[in-house]
Amino acid sequence: MFIYNKKLQYPVKIDKPNPRLASIIISQYGGPDGELGASLRYLSQRYSMPFDELKGLLTDIGTEELGHLEMIGAIVHQLTRNMKDSQIQDSAFAPYFVDHTAGVYPTAASGFPWNAASIAVKGDPIADLTEDLAAEQKARVTYDNILRLSDDPDVNNVIKFLREREVVHFQRFGEAMQLLREKLNQKNVYCMNPAIDM
């Protein structure tokens, strides 16, 4: 089961409201490569994983991603507190504001609501771990792009932390793939699906 820990993984303290920036960063809450998708992808893939290292790693990274979802929610919340009407009217935040006010809703920056079609659970460990490697890269690039679009150091410190976590997760998924491969037929790693044929 999950037990709530009443603290963030890394502190979020944003002095200046900036609704324009919130309208971009919301993509890591509910966008195609965001933290909601990441946590659901890993926590769902683990059921069909053989081998304890793979079950453990997907549980641990999936759980950390839930913590990252909360941090992104905190950033969006703090960027949209005490907004003045003029800040909303003149900003890219207006289309989001009309639907969600200062609430935090899982949507992509482009306005598309969160969709399970942006994640995959194939039920084959090599396919799923390969998906996870790509997912970490896509999340990293999204954070790169946010860093290009933001000049607020309070925000960027947190974004850089989250971006670096994607690099670490990529490394661990790559190692997990190697651990899996060592247990398969060395002449033909694709001779069966270890999730159901072992």
Partner: peptide, 18 residues
């Protein structure tokens, strides 16, 4: 603040480190 315990994995965007 770097987001990793391991210098070997610390690969910041545009080399801008926290």
């Amino acid at each position: 603040v770097r987001g990793t315990l391991f210098p070997g994995l610390d690969l910041p965007f545009m080399n801008k480190v926290n």
